[in-house]
Amino acid sequence: MTEPTRPGGTVPQSTAPRGPVLQIGALHPLVEETLAADHSALRLPADARDREDFLDRHAGEVRVAVCSGRTGVDRELMGRLPRLEAVVHFGVGYDGTDAAEAAARGIRMSNTPDVLTDAVADTALALYLDVLRRFSAADRFVRRGEWETTGDYPLTEHASGRRVGILGLGRIGRAVAHRLTALGCEIHYHNRRPVPGAGHRYHGSPAELAAAVDVLVVAVPGGPDSTALVDAAVLDALGPQGFLVNVARGTVVDETALVAALEEGRLAGAGLDVHRAEPHVPPALRRLENVVLLPHVGSATVQTRRAMAELTLRNLRSWLADGTLVTPVG
């Protein structure tokens, strides 16, 4: 195969020796152990001063970077790695990598789709049930001894048979819709364009979708194109009886607008697995009893993370062998 042309010439043909590999940030133990044992991978230091010294010595050697989707390879680091050919992501998201810059430089990217779909969809369902029925809050009520001192817990919202909007009807969005259909929910959705054969009602904008439903589930990819896609206008369209569930990326929701809507009673509640500046979560969100907060655990099952690790390594081995990726992005 012929490798893509990049500024300054072409990268080596697929039959040329490839390596070394650069690990960026912490990864699944299986990935880290295999990178070290099988590929003698370099590891980018976390400390800024050590990183500069490291790049001065090794930047010209690196051909493949392996990282999580959140860590990624930004424009600045990409510019420091003149021979970089591929970025192999552990995760379905890759918003930590400057995808436009990678495309301009002819750098290929991979991710780990499909293997985490069910785990993330299960998380969305759990958040959906929790934020409507207030199970986590009721648990805290019991643990504080309030059941004994104040009587029954307040009534909550029915979860079955609701109108639910899916923002992003991709693999995960469709899996969420499938689960909610089993609860008798009426599914609506918004994508950049209608999905043929989806069997659900399409709406032309996020705000239009939000206005038509009781609960909005966010499942779009992260990145510049979806930043603050759920803004104040969308939250206002969802309204004071509406609920938000986010299993996408924290950057997809305008966090400031979300806090204001919740504090002012313009939104009934939110279930959030992801946050804008992880691991920081605003104190205002942590104080609210009508908000369910998870520490980005959507795909965090033993089985899913193992499958993600294996697919990450398959992509790496494939690239090193012949310059192809098992699950390329784009």
Results as ranks from 00 to 15, higher is better:
residue 201 R to F: 00
residue 214 D to H: 08
residue 134 R to D: 07
residue 139 D to K: 08
residue 230 V to P: 05
residue 33 E to A: 15
residue 327 T to H: 10
residue 254 D to H: 09
residue 102 A to R: 04
residue 311 L to V: 14
residue 72 G to I: 05
residue 330 G to A: 15
residue 261 A to W: 06
residue 313 L to M: 06
residue 23 Q to V: 04
residue 72 G to M: 04
residue 328 P to M: 11
residue 196 P to T: 11
residue 231 D to A: 12
residue 170 G to Q: 10
residue 235 L to F: 12
residue 114 D to P: 03
residue 176 V to W: 02
residue 296 H to L: 03
residue 28 H to R: 02
residue 271 G to F: 09
residue 195 V to E: 15
residue 192 R to N: 14
residue 67 C to E: 02
residue 154 P to Y: 07
residue 68 S to N: 07
residue 93 G to V: 06
residue 236 D to K: 12
residue 284 A to V: 03
residue 87 V to D: 00
residue 290 N to S: 12
residue 309 A to P: 02
residue 301 T to Q: 02
residue 127 L to R: 11
residue 73 V to G: 03
residue 212 A to N: 02
residue 274 V to P: 07
residue 52 E to Q: 15
residue 206 P to S: 07
residue 106 G to E: 11
residue 1 M to A: 14
residue 106 G to C: 09
residue 279 P to C: 09
residue 67 C to G: 03
residue 48 A to P: 13
residue 43 R to W: 08
residue 170 G to M: 07
residue 236 D to W: 01
residue 240 P to G: 02
residue 39 H to R: 08
residue 278 E to Y: 08
residue 254 D to R: 09
residue 74 D to F: 05
residue 49 R to H: 15
residue 118 D to P: 01
residue 325 L to P: 00
residue 58 H to E: 13
residue 312 T to P: 03
residue 46 A to Q: 14
residue 270 A to D: 12
residue 72 G to E: 06
residue 243 F to M: 04
residue 169 L to H: 09
residue 153 Y to R: 00
residue 259 V to G: 06
residue 136 S to W: 06
residue 232 A to G: 04
residue 64 V to R: 01
residue 56 D to V: 06
residue 254 D to Q: 10
residue 189 Y to F: 14
residue 149 T to W: 03
residue 213 V to M: 02
residue 101 E to P: 00
residue 242 G to N: 03
residue 159 A to T: 10
residue 17 P to D: 06
residue 49 R to S: 15
residue 156 T to G: 03
residue 320 L to Y: 07
residue 305 R to D: 05
residue 197 G to S: 09
residue 273 D to K: 10
residue 19 G to P: 05
residue 74 D to T: 02
residue 124 A to V: 07
residue 265 G to K: 08
residue 162 R to G: 07
residue 95 D to A: 13
residue 221 P to C: 06
residue 264 E to V: 00
residue 248 A to N: 13
residue 3 E to N: 10
residue 307 A to F: 06
residue 69 G to P: 13
residue 2 T to R: 14
residue 305 R to E: 13
residue 170 G to L: 11
residue 24 I to P: 01
residue 47 D to F: 05
residue 71 T to Y: 08
residue 44 L to E: 07
residue 152 D to E: 12
residue 189 Y to P: 07
residue 4 P to L: 10
residue 23 Q to P: 00
residue 168 G to C: 11
residue 319 W to H: 15
residue 161 G to A: 06
residue 68 S to W: 08
residue 148 E to T: 10
residue 312 T to E: 01
residue 137 A to R: 14
residue 253 V to F: 01
residue 135 F to W: 12
residue 176 V to I: 15
residue 286 R to A: 06
residue 210 A to S: 01
residue 297 V to Q: 12
residue 267 L to K: 04
residue 306 R to F: 06
